[in-house]
Structure formats: structure tokens, C-alpha cells
Design a protein around this nucleic acid. Sequence first.
DNA 1: GGGCCGAGCCAC
DNA 2: AAACGTGGCTCGGCCC
Length: 580
Amino acid sequence: MEATGYRLIADEGELREAAARVSAAEYVGLDVETTALSPLDGRLRLLQLATPGGTFVVDLFGVGSLEPLRGVLEGGPVKVAHNSKFEYSFLKHECGIAVSPIFDTMLTSQLIAGGERGLSHSLEEVVRRYLGRELDKTVRAEDWSGDLSRRQLEYAARDAAVLLPLHGKLRRVLREEKLEYVARIEFAAVPSLAEMELAGIRLDRRRWRELERVVRERRDRVARELEAQLPQPEGVLPLEGLGPGINLNSPGQVIEAFRALGLDLPDTREWTLMRVDHPAAKLLLEYRELQKKLGTYLETYPDYIHPGTGRIHASFAQCRVPTGRLACSHPNIQQIPHEDEFRSCFVAGEGYLFVIADYSQIELRILAEVSGDEGFVRAFRQGEDLHRVTAATMFGVPMEEVTGEQRSAAKRINFGLAYGRGAQSLSAQLGTDEERARELIDEYFASYPKVQRYLQGAAEKALRQRTLRTLSGRVRKFGDTSGLDRKARSALRREAMNFPIQGSSADIAKLAMIHMRRELEGLDARLVNSIHDEFVVECREEIAGEVAERVRRSMLRAGETLLRRVPVEVEVAISPEWRK
DNA sequence: GGGCCGAGCCAC
DNA sequence: AAACGTGGCTCGGCCC
């Protein structure tokens, strides 16, 4: 790698001069070094700006304020960054600067990869893949809070400088691969995600603790009843209430205990236990549910409350999921149990309310759109109850005469097909035999012939052309499909049928987040959670009505941008708690 | 003590 | 023998 020239900026005068030089550039590489990984816990130390004419390394412990750079960072040249959510978050939180416009080389690499597994998207790997250069990343782990070595400064400058040739290369690839539109969506969504993380969400600690106590009592009671049913393991004296007993969380020990009862289990999954006719099996299922709630949610979530803000700041990964859905972690606030007793512990702050908005049946609307099936499209256009219409057509009865059971079967098929579900699994869910399930599917496809044609077409295309796209052009690439066994082939077919539907839904959700941020700008209102087709916005109580309308408008606009033949519907609720 | 993996299960 | 797409988290159980 070539020697890196850079200029260290250590006072305000030099910074103003640098800002003037940088503002003339069309693209600048942007990178920061920080004293911690979260802006809530650490500070910016260095800010690097790379232009074709040279790289500036700004020492924030020297300049004090980045105000002279505001004009460069907000508007002005395109800022090229790798994982720009990081730069955005620090600059927004620490300086109130909203970086824009953005070109993100990590998101670009992820879009181009199309969900292929095993590809790293670290700067080091992406530079190796697209530029054929080696970057030494060993300096990153060093301490950035004290005096900086020459090596550290060079490293910092080089990381920013490499973004320019990388951008040049990736821009060409984006164009060749027809990914420019979806890339624009991703880049524009970065501020929405960053600000959602910074905002965090409030968990009512007292109510959560109370719920924990109740659930723990229930669990302990079930555990005692269950242990009374199971034989004690050998070599353990049955000391009352003191025994180590068996570990109910260990599938191995549970299988052993059931064997002693004369029940041979292949595994201890829910599906297996459900059909075991023994009170211990029912108790174990009950125990599992309570243990899951306790261990995964109740005991651990309070640890995520940030001491500084008193709120939970989860992280959202923008392009980690091949379909384009967000992934959430630390903790995952997309998987809170749906029951009100859990969700209602997430509350708006004092004087604030939640606006909770979700898309109604968005994936089925997408299926209608992409398949173009007239019956399906008509049902949505006329605002009918789709499951009822489906049942009426499938079973050949008038709408008014559809029974609850028929509607429920139709609903399960409607949803199942979007996941590529087959007769076998459908029969298990409906409690019919496989032949009957096959008949139902046939009747379904007879009612909606273009849906069948579409789904089969997607599966074939994945196998033959090995690439599929969503409505925004997001691509999913499938590896070599020639050597797959039957099982792997059918798994791939199912994935192929699902990808455009789930992926287009993610496209719409991301567009909605972009619109929403603009619609809410200047209001005391912000997005605090995003659960695929649902958004939770927190706002001052006085403006909740107005915010609800703006959220609805943003979501409808996003839906209508990508769905041209099918109407979009959004349901909005206002509540001090996260609940329906 | 940390890392890894499979089983199991929560969400959409 | 067994399920139906996308994830993340906790646990036991194993390794170094």
C-alpha cells in the first residue's frame, strides 16, 4: 500500500481552512476513531476526511468543536463511509450534525453479495475483494483516548483515504448490477436507524420486575409439580426441596427421565411433546414457556437499560438479513412476546405517547401485486376480507356462508404459501390428512392461478438463473444449485418463493422509515422501534394525533411507491404503552 | 474463563 | 422420520 500523506488538524483555524478545501470535493471519505463503540459511552477522538487532494485528520481533543465542518458534513459533498451508521450516530449525538448525503461501502458490499453466506463485509475484506489491496487492521484495538502515535494517525488517515477508490469501484458495480435504486433507499435509511438506536425505548422497570416475580412463581410451581412426576435420578437422595433433581433445561436429562417413565422420546421439541399423552409432557411444555420468558426476557432486559439515559438502546443491523429485513440485537426488541403483559411494560416517557402503526396484510398484498392474480387483486381493491373471499372461492360457497373453520383454513393457506408451505406441513397444522391438504392447496391454486404460476416461476428462476429480485431491485443470489439433494432443493425453492415477498416488504418498510423521519422533522416525535411491518413512534402527547397522521401518510406513500395495482392499508393506534 | 454449537423457542 | 421463510437469545454441553 502506498504511503499515506495526511495533515493533522489540531486547532480551529486549521479546521476552517480544511473545511474550505474539502467543501469543493464531490466525494469525501469519512471515518472516525472513538473511545468506545457507542456514542452513549464514548467520545469522538479523530475525524478523518479524505479528498483526492489529501486527507485531513482532525483531533477532536484539539479543535474542541466541529462546527466549522457542519457545512461539509450536512449537505455538501457525498460522504463515503464504511458502516456509516457509526459515523452518523457519533456526529449526531455529540455535535448535533446529521451527516448527509451518504454512500455506504459496507451496505453496498452487502447489497452486491445478495445474501451469499460466508462473505465478510469488514472494510479489510471489502478492500481486498474489490481493490485487491491489503489493509492492516491491527491498530484498531489500540487505545484512542490518550496521546496518539504516528502509526495510529497514519492508520486513521489511510482508512479514510481508501474509501475514495473503493467508492469509485463500488459505484460501477452498483450500476452494472442494477442496484442503484435499492442502494439509494439503504443510504437514505441510515439516519432513521441511527436515530432510532439513539432514541432508545423506555422499559418500566418496576412493572417488569413485578411480572418477573409472577412468572417465576408460576415456573417454580410447575417445576415442583413436574419433578414430582419424574423419577429421581440415580444416586441422588430425594432430599425434600433440596435435590439437585434433574436439570429441566437439559434435553438429554429430560429424555432420560421420560425413558424411566416408559416413554421413549426422539427429542423434546414442542411438536413431539404435544402428542405425548402424559401429564409430565404437558407440564414440561408449560415449564419451557415460563422458563423462556424468564431467562430470555424478564431476567435479562433490565441489564440493557442504559445508566445514562434510563432507556434500552438496541442495535439494528440494516443489511445483514438477505431479504433486507432489519436484524435487531442487544437486546432483540423485535421478539418481545406478543402478549400485552410483556409489551405494555414498554412505555412512553412522562408527557409522551406512542403512535403504533402497522401495515395490514402487507405480504399478501405484495403477493397479489407481483403475481398479478386478478382475483387476489380484486379482493384487496374492493376492501374485502381476503381470507373469507379465499374460503368462498376455494370451497365454492357464497361469502355469507363461509364457516369459521373454512375461513381459518383459508387464512392458514394464504399465509403458509408465502412461506412455500407444502401439503405435509399444512395437514399437520390443519389437523387433516395430507390428501385433504393437497386438495385444499389445489383448490386454492385453481382460485388464484397466477399466484401458483408466480410461485413456481420464482422457484424455477432461482434454480436456473440463480438470482431473484424484490420490487426495489434488491437481489438475492443463489450459489451453485446443480449439486443439491432433494431436501436442499426444496428448501431453496421455498426460500425463492418467500424472498421477493418478504424482501419487498422490507423495501417498503425502509422507504417508510425514510419518509417518516422527514415527516417528523422538527416535531418532538421519533421512531423508537421497528418490527418489520410495524413502527412505534414516541411523541409529545399534545401532537399525537398529528404525528399519527404523518406516520400513516409516510407508510402509505412508501407502500404506494412500490405497489401499483394493490391498495395499501395502515392501522394506527395511540397509547401510552406498546400494545394493540 | 471464553468460544462454539445445537436444541429449543420468541418475533414477523 | 417428520414442518414453513427470515432472524436473535439462552441454555447445556463441549472444547481449549
